[in-house]
Design a protein around this nucleic acid. Structure first.
Lengths: 233, 233
DNA sequence: ACTTGGCGTCTCACTGTGCGGGATGAGAGT
DNA sequence: ACTCTCATCCCGCACAGTGAGACGCCAAGT
């Protein structure tokens, strides 16, 4: 039982959508990725196809369908919204800034503003990073339902206690978790119900950011997260 | 009964997603827009929220959720794919070219390449047009399940016969349907299962395009549609 | 040529899930 | 204090969804 308010058919259908999100899947692969019986996977995939939420590739695999883009069209792109706040954050702190969104067991950088000169951490837009390391992972997971977090913690370089601290403070900090010599500081961006939309981060060398971030830097990251949250509503 | 392979819970859940796609809705508005009983609408909306397919706005309304973007992230944006084919089509035909996707009872221009000089038809990217007029509407609807088409035909300036012709020929033509003095020519872009992803169009003054399009122009539109179809797989 | 195995599709008896009317509580307005 | 509207929740019951197994197709192996 993974969902707080389970509707079985919906839970299974969404499992199918996630199963094909990263890579198309044959029916057999879909069965493996979702754990559903073959008849059930087939029946629900065909129903999703009817709603254009999945489609079949020329090879006969299942893939995300055009209705996903249509359903989301009216929603402002958080990456686009985030950019100007990241530029302001970069200028305020002197470090590269990024905005991450969660994608299953990964996080994706959907917007970035790089420090323009000198030593800097670079995360290209589109980069996919793990949810098992880095302060952005902490920020993305801290307010996520416990069931989902429990699955990830065994492979993570942080603990439930780390996430408790993030919930208390409202921000996350890590040193050399994702990459040696790099420190980062992140804050979650949340919607009106507290749902996590993404995470704002700054990152740079430990020598500059320090092992414990200054209040001014923390404040700047929190301000950027709040601004993106307001703009995304 | 609207879907060929109905799964009731899924049908209702997707109705909710469509109900909030264009404009957030309070629960009361959701009930009106979907026709579902209040308890059902509430229960399924909460379940969708659990999956992050909907979210609540600060005002307490339901709106599209971040998982829609996540589920679609790996899918190439057809608009981006289409642009260079539209440029080639514009250059080949000397008319403005657009790519439309369907959005419920509307169509949206997601990519365009305008004729650079002289008299031209302009449809800005992002423009939302009705499905009741214009050759792009014909192209988008011709291969759509009959149930969906039947609902639109009473308000349309074309008939089921028009759509039959489109299915036979593979392209659609209209004169002064959406706008006086403008003719257009469109072809559907379909996926491997024949599902409609969008429609490629050219449009311009009747004086240039004529009341009956030339074979060369038709061929260029069909080629562009096929190229986008291949690129989107 | 024949056999075998894997895959996608379909059927249908069965049962567990989802339904939705109505109760409840909160908040706003009078 | 009272009324009204809205969102939330409960739970008995009917039927929608389940999934094992049959079927057809196709490709690979013998």
């Amino acid at each position: 039982m993974g969902q707080p308010n389970p509707v079985g058919v919906l839970d299974k259908a969404v499992a199918i959508l996630h199963a094909v999100a990263d890579e198309p899947a044959t029916l057999a692969e879909l069965v493996v990725r979702t754990g559903l019986p073959r008849a059930t996977a087939h029946r629900l995939a065909v129903a999703l196809e009817g709603h254009r939420l999945v489609r079949r590739t020329p090879e006969g695999s299942w893939a995300p369908g055009p209705a996903l883009a249509e359903l989301n069209r009216g929603t402002p792109d958080l990456g686009e919204i985030a950019v100007r706040h990241l530029v302001a954050l970069r200028d305020a702190t002197g470090e590269s800034a990024q905005f991450y969104v969660r994608d299953g067991s990964s996080r994706v950088c959907v917007a970035a503003a790089e420090r323009t000169s000198g030593l800097r951490d670079t995360v290209p837009v589109g980069a996919r990073l793990p949810m098992t390391a880095g302060s952005a992972a902490h920020a993305l997971l801290a307010f996520t339902p416990a069931e989902e977090v429990t699955r990830l913690l065994p492979a993570a370089s942080f603990t439930a206690r780390t996430l408790l601290d993030v919930r208390r403070r409202g921000w996350a900090h890590s040193v050399a978790e994702r990459e040696p010599g790099v420190a980062s500081l992140s804050a979650p961006v949340r919607d009106a119900s507290g749902g996590v939309l993404g995470a704002v981060s700054i990152s740079g060398p430990v020598e500059r950011l320090g092992r414990r971030p200054g209040a001014e830097v923390v404040g700047a990251v929190l301000d950027a997260a709040a601004a993106i949250s307001r703009a995304g509503r």
